[in-house]
Amino acid sequence: MDLKVGIIGSADILVSEENTAKTMGSGSLDVFATPAMIALMEKAASIAVQNYIDEDSSTVGTMINVKHMAATPIGLNVTARAELVEVDGKRLVFNVEAFDEKGKIGEGQHERFIINAQRFISKAKSKLNE
């Protein structure tokens, strides 16, 4: 594992009816939903580190603190960018931003943890047998 501060990941998506606030239930308008922006930011962070962790590992989001600063209509593209700013053992902290074609629409911080994928899934599935 060779995780270093400064690693950057990005992800993008076209705003469509599927990811509007109205469709996702986070509001009543046909604009890019805050939950969709958050998911895109998490995806960018996940992508940033995927080539730097062991094959049997993954990362999971544990905290996000973001501002959604501007609305984006259907038809525009949104790009999220995540920069790794802190590595504390298995804890990873990212600065995240999102932009549409006209400018910045969101920013904040996101925390992820490196986990063993098989153990994590086994523990989650064990809840079915409780």
Score class of each variant (00 low, 15 high):
Asp2Gln: 02
Asp2Ser: 01
Asp2Val: 00
Leu3Ala: 10
Lys4Thr: 03
Lys4Ser: 08
Gly6Lys: 00
Gly6Phe: 04
Gly6His: 00
Ile8Met: 07
Ile8Tyr: 05
Ile8Leu: 02
Gly9Gln: 01
Asp12Ser: 15
Asp12Asn: 14
Ile13Leu: 12
Leu14Ala: 10
Leu14Lys: 13
Leu14Glu: 13
Val15Arg: 01
Ser16Cys: 05
Asn19His: 08
Thr20Arg: 01
Thr20Ile: 05
Ala21Phe: 04
Lys22Tyr: 10
Lys22Arg: 12
Lys22Cys: 01
Lys22Met: 06
Thr23Asp: 00
Met24Leu: 15
Gly25Arg: 03
Gly25Phe: 10
Ser26Val: 14
Ser26Gln: 11
Ser26Arg: 09
Ser28Ala: 11
Leu29Trp: 09
Asp30Ala: 08
Val31Leu: 03
Ala33Leu: 02
Thr34His: 02
Pro35Trp: 04
Pro35Asp: 03
Ala36Phe: 08
Met37Thr: 15
Ile38Phe: 14
Ile38Val: 15
Ala39His: 14
Ala39Asp: 14
Leu40Ile: 10
Met41Asp: 08
Glu42Trp: 10
Ala45Ser: 15
Ile47Lys: 11
Ile47Gln: 10
Ala48Met: 08
Ala48Leu: 07
Asn51Tyr: 12
Asp54Val: 03
Asp54Met: 06
Glu55Phe: 07
Glu55Asn: 05
Asp56Ala: 14
Asp56Ile: 12
Asp56Leu: 11
Asp56Lys: 12
Ser57Asn: 07
Ser58His: 13
Thr59Glu: 02
Val60Asp: 05
Gly61Arg: 02
Thr62Asp: 09
Ile64Cys: 06
Asn65Ile: 10
Val66Tyr: 09
Lys67Glu: 13
His68Pro: 06
Met69Val: 15
Ala70Asn: 09
Ala71Pro: 02
Ala71Gly: 08
Ala71Cys: 01
Ala71Ser: 13
Gly75Thr: 04
Gly75Ile: 03
Leu76Thr: 09
Leu76Arg: 12
Val78His: 02
Thr79Phe: 00
Thr79Lys: 06
Arg81Gly: 02
Ala82Pro: 02
Glu83Trp: 04
Glu83Leu: 09
Glu83Ala: 09
Leu84Arg: 04
Val85Leu: 00
Glu86Met: 04
Glu86Leu: 03
Gly89Ala: 01
Gly89Asn: 04
Val93Arg: 15
Phe94Val: 12
Phe94Trp: 11
Asn95Leu: 07
Val96Pro: 04
Val96Asp: 07
Glu97Asn: 09
Ala98Asp: 04
Asp100Val: 15
Asp100Ile: 15
Lys102Asp: 14
Lys104Gly: 05
Ile105Asn: 03
Gly106Pro: 12
Gly106Glu: 13
Glu107Gly: 11
Gly108Pro: 11
Gly108His: 11
His110Trp: 10
Glu111Leu: 14
Glu111Val: 15
Phe113Asp: 00
Phe113Val: 12
Ile114Leu: 05
Asn116Arg: 13
Asn116Glu: 13
Gln118Ile: 13
Arg119Ala: 11
Phe120Glu: 05
Phe120Ser: 09
Ser122Met: 15
Ser122His: 14
Ser122Tyr: 13
Ser122Thr: 13
Ser126Gln: 02
Lys127Glu: 11
Lys127Cys: 08
Asn129Ile: 09
Glu130Phe: 12
